Lab assay of single mutants.
Amino acid sequence: VSKLITEALSVSQERVGMSLVALKKALAAAGYDVEKNNSRIKLSLKSLVNKGILVQTRGTGASGSFKLS
């Protein structure tokens, strides 16, 4: 899941990052079952932020906008 998230964010052209909703849409378009794996998406977002791979530009927790650091 982390690999899919970083790939989706690297393609994004948004300056402020990608919102959680837009990220879920991009994952669904890539063929990932978002409804079934919603908790996995949130956990991997939090772990990527803690590792310093992603930066959360808006919001708290697993909601808001994210971009690559």
Score class of each variant (00 low, 15 high):
Ser2Tyr: 07
Ser2Cys: 03
Leu4Phe: 08
Leu4Ser: 13
Thr6Phe: 02
Glu7Thr: 04
Glu7Gly: 00
Ala8Gln: 01
Leu9Cys: 03
Leu9Ser: 01
Ser10Met: 07
Ser10Ala: 11
Val11Asp: 08
Ser12Leu: 13
Ser12Pro: 02
Ser12Ala: 12
Gln13Tyr: 06
Gln13Glu: 11
Glu14Ala: 02
Arg15Tyr: 04
Arg15Ile: 04
Val16Ile: 11
Val16Asp: 15
Val16His: 12
Gly17Leu: 02
Gly17Asp: 03
Met18Ser: 13
Met18Asp: 04
Ser19Glu: 02
Ser19Phe: 11
Leu20Trp: 12
Leu20Arg: 02
Ala22Glu: 00
Ala22Cys: 12
Leu23Thr: 00
Leu23Ser: 00
Leu23Val: 10
Leu23Lys: 00
Lys24Glu: 04
Lys24Asp: 00
Lys25Trp: 01
Ala28Arg: 13
Ala28Trp: 04
Ala29Glu: 14
Ala29Asn: 13
Ala30Asn: 05
Ala30His: 04
Ala30Leu: 06
Gly31Leu: 05
Asp33His: 15
Val34Ala: 07
Lys36Asp: 03
Lys36Cys: 02
Asn37Pro: 07
Asn38Leu: 14
Ser39Val: 02
Ser39Thr: 13
Arg40Ser: 03
Arg40Lys: 15
Arg40Gln: 13
Ile41Gln: 02
Ser44Phe: 05
Leu45Gln: 01
Leu45Ile: 03
Lys46Ile: 08
Lys46Leu: 07
Ser47Leu: 06
Ser47Asp: 11
Leu48Lys: 00
Leu48His: 00
Val49Thr: 06
Asn50Trp: 00
Asn50His: 06
Lys51Gln: 11
Lys51Val: 02
Lys51Tyr: 00
Gly52Leu: 06
Gly52Trp: 02
Ile53Asn: 13
Ile53Pro: 06
Ile53Trp: 11
Leu54Ser: 11
Leu54Val: 15
Val55His: 10
Val55Met: 13
Val55Asp: 05
Gln56Gly: 13
Thr57Cys: 12
Gly59Tyr: 06
Gly59His: 08
Gly59Pro: 08
Gly59Arg: 08
Gly59Gln: 10
Gly59Cys: 12
Thr60Ser: 13
Thr60Pro: 13
Gly61Pro: 08
Gly64Cys: 15
Gly64Glu: 14
Gly64Arg: 12
Gly64Trp: 10
Ser65Gln: 14
Ser65Asn: 13
Ser65Thr: 14
Lys67Cys: 10
Lys67Ile: 07
Ser69Phe: 11
Ser69Trp: 15
Ser69Ala: 14
Ser69Pro: 09
